[in-house]
């Protein structure tokens, strides 16, 4: 292809491409990683139980499904939207999978059906946002409620239990790694953060998400189909929430219609703590991972140090605000 870039013969100096390591340490992530380490150090020195392998893996497992859902959420937020239905989607996908299992369908088929529903829900959100032009907040708020109603309606309020062993394997297995037994959900989370990162930062589709979130109008003038980008991000958010929901169901062995109620706020908070701007076009999934870790470690810590249950939600709120404030302060100083 003839490109008009041969005019100057001077060779450009190629500076080394920043790898994942330096990306991790670039501006946005540095602060929250420091906060995370600070929390870990404080907890390690104040409790004798925090830094045990057992507890660490417990925490890892516990935030894996929130984190996976928040990777999908991150894509939506980076693309300039928001997905409030992710908590309900988690519950719904878990219930659909459990229902399929209880009808005697195979594990793989049931999971695929659960995931399919996740994508479908996200796709509907995408249609509502890009075709019906509803504000994402409203469209997904409605979806949140609709899905929760489905969860209750389909189960008459009863949790679905007695799921087959082959399914519970997903959430309950620990894989041996040297001396540790790493929970499978945590490994699945790592897998998802890596593919999400590659998708967002190294593929055309990912670039288009940033462009639409950064300036939708400019993106469409650059030939990007903004509607398609929206279908994709909401569908992915639905898919990722379904993955999280199915993992959680498999871990607990029960699909409850009340499951994951209010998790959308944790999922969004994880992304925001991780430096993903609600204005769109900014941030990456590593931030969401660290954000989810901070949230879960905080909850874990409050229990370990015996912080009164009645005050916990205030403590969590305060940490969300301070983490974002510190990040804002850092940004302003630059």
């Amino acid at each position: 292809m003839p490109t008009p870039k041969t005019e100057s013969d001077a060779e450009t100096t190629t500076s080394p491409q920043p790898g994942i390591g330096s990306k991790l340490l670039n501006n946005q992530l540095t602060t929250i990683i420091l906060i995370l380490f600070l929390m870990i150090i404080l907890l390690g020195s104040f409790t004798r139980t925090f830094l045990t392998a057992n507890n660490i893996f417990n925490v890892l497992r516990a935030f894996s499904w929130i984190a996976i859902a928040s990777f999908g959420q991150s894509m939506v937020i980076i693309g300039g939207g928001i997905d409030l239905s992710s908590g309900s989607t988690m519950a719904f996908a878990g219930i659909m999978t459990a229902m399929m299992l209880s009808y005697g369908l195979g594990v793989l088929v049931s999971i695929l059906i659960g995931l399919g529903f996740g994508v479908f829900i996200g796709f509907i959100n995408g249609i509502l946002v890009s075709q019906a032009k509803l504000p994402p907040f409203i469209a997904t708020l409605g979806m949140l409620s609709i899905l929760r109603g489905f969860c209750y309606g389909l189960t008459s309020g009863w949790p679905i239990r007695d799921l087959p062993r082959g399914f519970l394997f997903l959430g309950q297995t620990d894989l041996a790694f040297y001396i540790w037994k790493v929970p499978l959900p945590a490994l699945i989370m790592v897998f998802f953060v890596i593919i999400s990162y590659i998708y967002l930062s190294k593929t055309k589709g990912g670039y288009h998400i940033y462009a639409v979130g950064g300036n939708e109008y400019a993106a469409s003038l650059a030939g990007i189909d903004a509607k398609r980008v929206k279908y994709v991000i909401y569908s992915l958010s639905g898919l990722f929430a379904a993955v999280g929901g199915i993992l959680m169901t498999s871990r607990l062995g029960v699909a409850a219609p009340t499951a994951a109620q209010g998790y959308e706020l944790d999922i969004i908070a994880a992304a925001v703590i991780g430096g993903i701007s609600l204005n769109g076009g900014e941030g990456n999934v590593w931030g969401a991972l660290v954000g989810a870790a901070i949230m879960q470690i905080l909850r874990n810590a409050l229990v370990l140090v015996g912080f009164p249950a009645y005050w916990q939600s205030s403590a969590i709120g305060a940490v969300i605000i301070s983490a974002v404030m510190i990040d804002q302060y850092r940004k302003r100083r630059i």
Partner: peptide
């Protein structure tokens, strides 16, 4: 020794019980 809350949520219930056992 402690009172913990789980917001009527199975997942959080499991989590905090284990954390209390840990502590």
């Amino acid at each position: 020794v402690t009172t913990v809350a789980c917001d009527d949520d199975i997942n959080k219930g499991v989590q905090v019980v284990e954390e209390v056992m840990q502590a």
